[in-house]
Write a protein that binds this DNA or RNA. Structure first.
Length: 229
DNA sequence: GCGACAG
DNA sequence: ATCTTGTCGC
């Protein structure tokens, strides 16, 4: 599929922040977005050894599933190196080059992209899911496993229960329970999808496990590719 | 000033 | 993210 170019590429954290601020206005936050996408792609990256600085070996995977059956429609994985050190708030610059390469190799263009991390729930309102959305033009959502910014009250214990994630007086996401009695995930919108639809999709992708089937598939594929060396 | 801090 | 043993539970 087609993906916009990444340049200019930042050499410093300051430049990376400027890029986020410059791309932020490109976001489409009007919903509702695809409620019944036919295909959904999951993105994830695995690292070899200590994953702190730039240059460490990594593998990025994109796995496209049929939304109804959750069967794999297409998948691509590429290996490379971390393009940026890990800095909270600039996480996207670490794996974006490899993810873009994997996406470009896909023989199909998915109806939705699910990122492992945050979208709008970000210090400058431009997390990985937003960045991927602007680059691809596709609807994107972010589903993170742990907290980053914002405050919230614990959601109810049942699958489907959720509570608003608030930051600076605004709702930037939702803490959503995808399985009964299991730790919730953090859902935020990326591009061209509203929060209710994002949570609806998150639940459709978690019929059995806490994390979306898309993320689980991409995680396994990237991990295997790394091990294959 | 002191923590917290997506992956 | 990744490094890791044992341990609890279905």
């Amino acid at each position: 599929m087609e993906v916009a170019d990444l340049h200019p590429w930042p050499a410093t954290p300051r430049e990376a922040e400027e890029i986020q601020d410059r791309l932020r206005p490109m976001l489409d936050l009007d919903g509702p977005g695809p409620r019944e996408p036919r295909t959904v792609a999951g993105l994830d990256v695995s690292y070899a050894g200590d994953g702190g600085g730039a240059g460490v070996r990594l593998a990025a995977a994109a796995v496209v599933l049929d939304t109804g059956s959750l069967e794999v429609v297409a998948e691509r994985v590429v290996t490379g190196t971390a393009a940026f050190p890990y800095v909270p708030g600039l996480f996207a610059f670490r794996e974006l080059p490899a993810l873009v390469e994997a996406l470009r190799a896909l023989p199909v263009s998915p109806d939705l992209l699910v990122c492992d991390g945050y979208g709008l729930a970000h210090p400058r309102r431009f997390g990985l899911a937003c960045h991927v959305g602007v680059l691809t033009g596709l609807p994107t959502i972010g589903i993170a496993k742990t907290g980053f910014i914002g405050s919230y009250d614990p959601p109810g214990r049942r699958r489907g229960d959720g509570s608003p994630l608030r930051d600076g007086g605004e709702v930037v996401g939702r803490v959503l329970r995808t399985r009964d009695g299991v730790r919730p995930v953090f859902v935020s919108v990326g591009h061209r999808v509203d929060l209710d639809t994002a949570c609806h999709l998150a639940l459709a992708l978690t019929p059995r496990y806490r994390l979306p089937e898309t993320t689980r598939r991409a995680d396994r594929l990237s991990r295997d590719a790394l091990a294959a060396r």
